[in-house]
Design a binder for these strands. Structure first.
Lengths: 124, 124
DNA sequence: GTCATCAGTAACCGCTGGTTACCGTCATCA
DNA sequence: TGATGACGGTAACCAGCGGTTACTGATGAC
């Protein structure tokens, strides 16, 4: 019955930890953070790097991540405009577990797709 | 399929790795896998454990995870019905990176919420 | 008779993720 | 003097899906 828990309980729907999970649970977040983990990128570079993302969605994702202190958005008063995105320390700390997820995903695609095929053919 | 690595490229939108990411990128998946990582659970137990999940959504999540070979669904011909869910080896391997995410989320709620407040008050 | 248990479905609905189109500004090129 | 293109986005629009509240069916307990 602590007042304000330093560590949240993910299983409590009212715990703010959930909102953090919602951030992470966005597929674009994973890709963006992963892309930025190697260094600063501009909007268009991110767009190219993260294949298939629509500009609006990328903007939303970046704004949300900026709001959450995961990355910093730097605007240079130039024409054409120049906007750079880079991870904060917080963002870099997030990049590690995200890399683990990414690693798992890339490493187990085969197994998952196999399970999926097997499941689909058995249910049919 | 064989045990060949078959590493995908997450940044390619046409790579099947993306579908795996979509699975993981579901917030309920994280919670369900995490809940099951400590042992077998029944539907109602899962529902109670994962606070705030609607039955339909839980069913969808569980079916998807079953299809992907992350967990196994065992039905006992009883009345009232008894259905148990447990992680497969694949699921247990996923539980590790997921635990890392969960850990990060629980450990950095404060920082994220602080960043959020700061952002919101500066933008206004 | 009727209540509760369990594991879900049925029907509905609003939001939001996603799409394409378009914007202003300035340098460059014909 | 247009015309064009780069850049970093917004505007308007829409389908789908996540989420909600009912409701089901079989059985044992009361």
């Amino acid at each position: 019955m602590e007042g304000l828990p330093l560590r949240g309980d993910l299983f409590d729907p009212d715990c703010p930890t959930r909102v953090v999970l919602d951030r992470i649970g966005d597929k674009w977040t994973v890709l963006v953070v992963s892309a930025l983990s190697t260094g600063t990128l501009r909007f268009t570079e991110l767009r190219a790097r993260v294949g298939g993302v629509a500009p609006k969605v990328l903007t939303q994702t970046l704004r949300a991540l900026e709001r959450d202190g995961i990355l910093i958005r730097t605007i240079y008063a130039q024409v054409p405009p120049r906007v750079e995105y880079q991870l904060t320390d917080l963002g870099r700390s997030l990049a590690q577990p995200i890399a683990a997820i990414q690693d798992w995903a890339e490493g187990h695609v085969g197994a998952v797709l196999a399970a999926r095929n097997s499941y689909d053919s058995s249910v049919a």
